[in-house]
Amino acid sequence: MRRRSFLASSTALAGLTALGTALPARGPALADTALEIPRVMAEPASAAAGLVRPDTRFDVVTVTRPVTTRTEPAIRFETGGVLGAWEPVHLHTSGRDDRDPVSSAVVRAPEGATGYEVRGGAQTSALNLSDGEALRLDGPARTSLSAPDGGYQTLSGPYGRPSARFVTRAGWGADESYRFDDEGNDLWPAEFHPVQALTVHHTALATSGDHAADVRAVYHLHAVQLAWGDIGYHVLIDPDGVVYEGRHSGGDGVPVFSGRPRPGRAASVTAGHAYTFNHGNVGVCLLGDFTDELPTQAARDSLVDVLRLLCAVTGADPAAEIEYVHPGTGARTPARTISRHRDWLDTECPGNAFSEVFDTEIRQRVVRGRG
């Protein structure tokens, strides 16, 4: 089975019916019918390419390089035959635990850009997110996940019954062929571990008017360009507060988990958002760059809702200071149940502006269980 001939389809999501009732969805309604999504078109360039003028229009430029490279990366775009000013590139350090870590970023191209140049020893690729051949996806476009009946109790106090509504992988246009090699082998077989922590990220990517396309850009970077075989986050949230299913977790219809999650027994699929701390660590990523500004109120509210839900279905205490234990090596690392990416690794993520208010805007709201 060749990668390009693999028939893309959604994860079956009927199994979520038992987990909660349908919720009103933030954002535009998505019908549970066949969708046609444009494939991502990519045009890679070498680290020594200088000024690159892609053959087709491009929406974003992806930047990747080894974590050992210390030069500060920067990018500039050509528009109307004129090169603009150099702009800093905000890199993430992440990766699958069975691969070398990588620093990467996705940079939005200005309208009408005809070329770009990157300095700092990086590989790049120009992505066109809207003009590729149509990819047909079938299945539910949305689903919901709720906490068990009766709410839940932690050391911080009683909670209600939080819920979240997800855009499925089919709903945002995941090309499932990325997950397989030319012989049909799964490039990143699912591995599950009991949930210990929840980690918040940002994409450091200026968003567009098509947030599903923004998710597809991150998916292409992780799955294809970095050759992970899938997206490295479990959950993504856009500026409108819409929540997206991330890493593929199997055919049972439950995002993130190995099956219907129960407090104390919930196991999450291993992703690639916090290198060496991925097992049992659920990655929730906000679309946007929060180096100099905060996420929208809608995004912050959705993030709080999602974190409450994840605490409810796993039994994790949002106020707890924990000792993260790597299930393979036994290495122990002091942490908090709800952490920022930068709490685990040397990275700017989830942005300086957001990080400064993270405790009051997110963690304390989750702990309070309301407001």
Results as ranks from 00 to 15, higher is better:
Asp238Leu: 03
Ala212Gln: 10
Val325Arg: 10
Ala223His: 01
Leu51His: 11
His193Leu: 02
Ala34Ile: 03
Asp55Leu: 13
Ala266Ser: 06
Pro44Thr: 12
Gly184Thr: 09
Val167Tyr: 05
His92Trp: 07
Ala271His: 05
Tyr152Gly: 14
Ser146Trp: 04
Trp188Leu: 05
Thr347Asn: 08
Asp98Lys: 01
Leu129Gly: 08
His273Ile: 02
Leu91Asp: 06
Gln364Ile: 00
Gly132Asp: 11
Gln297Leu: 15
Gly280Pro: 03
Leu137Met: 07
Phe358His: 10
Asp240Thr: 14
Val224Thr: 12
Ala206Leu: 07
Gly50Met: 09
Gly351Asn: 06
Gly173Val: 04
Gly15Glu: 13
Asp210Tyr: 08
Pro295Arg: 10
Glu321Cys: 06
Glu78Gly: 00
Leu155Ser: 15
Asp100Phe: 02
Pro148Gly: 13
Asp292Leu: 08
Asp317Lys: 12
Val304Ala: 07
His248Lys: 01
Pro73Phe: 13
Tyr159Trp: 07
Ile362Trp: 11
Thr276Cys: 01
Pro194Trp: 11
Ala267Thr: 04
Ser156Gly: 09
Ala147Ser: 13
Phe6Thr: 10
Phe180Leu: 12
Ala206Ile: 05
Pro38Gln: 14
Thr291Ile: 04
Pro263Tyr: 15
Pro318Met: 09
Gly328Lys: 15
Pro88Tyr: 12
Gly351Lys: 01
Arg119Pro: 01
Tyr244Gly: 02
Leu309Ser: 08
Ala126Val: 09
Ala312Cys: 07
Arg179Gln: 13
Val243Tyr: 06
Tyr219Trp: 15
Ala190Asp: 10
Gly351Leu: 03
Ser144Glu: 11
Asp59Val: 05
Gly184Lys: 14
Val357Lys: 12
Asp182Asn: 15
Thr114Ala: 12
Arg300Asp: 10
Arg161Ala: 14
Arg332Leu: 03
His248Asp: 02
Val107His: 13
